[in-house]
Amino acid sequence: MNRTYIILGAASGIAKAVSRSLASRGHDLILAGRSQEELNLLAKDLETRHQVQARILVFDASCRAEVTGLLEASTRLNDAQLVDGVILAYGVMFPQPETEANLDLLALTLEVNLVSSVLVLQAFANAFVTRGRGVIVGISSVAGDRGRGSNYHYGCSKAGLSAFLDGLRHRLHDKGVHVCTVKPGFVATPMTDGLVNPNSPLCARPDQVARDILRAIDRKTGRIYTLWVWRWIMMIIRSVPEFLFLRTKL
């Protein structure tokens, strides 16, 4: 059945792959993001490749008013219909030494990855509950599973997002709303360019992540790691006793 999904942060590497997968199934899309130019290019690409409707919505996740207006704006764009699902795919990651030295950057990390994400998803969740149907996919990160000295600023923003999604799923599991937490490990995308080795067997391509996300939507899975091997890696990392963990360099 033809649905409409809104992709928040549509220009990101993972979002592009997810959008293409959804469009290949005939779903219409609302692409929301910061750069009108990029969104326009992506919309044309989806329309050309898959003959779906792709509309664009420009917003800045660091601007509170634009974030809280997203639900209404997307409904307006979708011919006054509430969208069928929302996929949150935006996020920022600065090198940790920069966020340690510059608290404004740390605040921006929290504002974008946590505060704005929670606000916008809560708004959509409320509307979905009222309707009794909806899909919410939040792309969090394995970095939120345990704070690590090298990346705990980004990690704490994603830990907060993961906890929010856990709770939301708990509350909505019998309300017809599917909430899915996606925890990617290394993914070769523009955000991680230069930070991860794209040839590593632990590093996923965006289309692999997209495939996992679509499968999770189909099967109404609550939480996924992608690649799957990260579930086991993070289980080990979480279970290392603190006194040992402190001696590691992670």
Binding site: K16, L41, L42, K44, D45, T48
Partner: peptide, 9 residues
């Protein structure tokens, strides 16, 4: 890698 968009056909 990111310049892979088909704009019209």
């Amino acid at each position: 890698g990111n310049a892979d968009r088909i704009l019209s056909f």
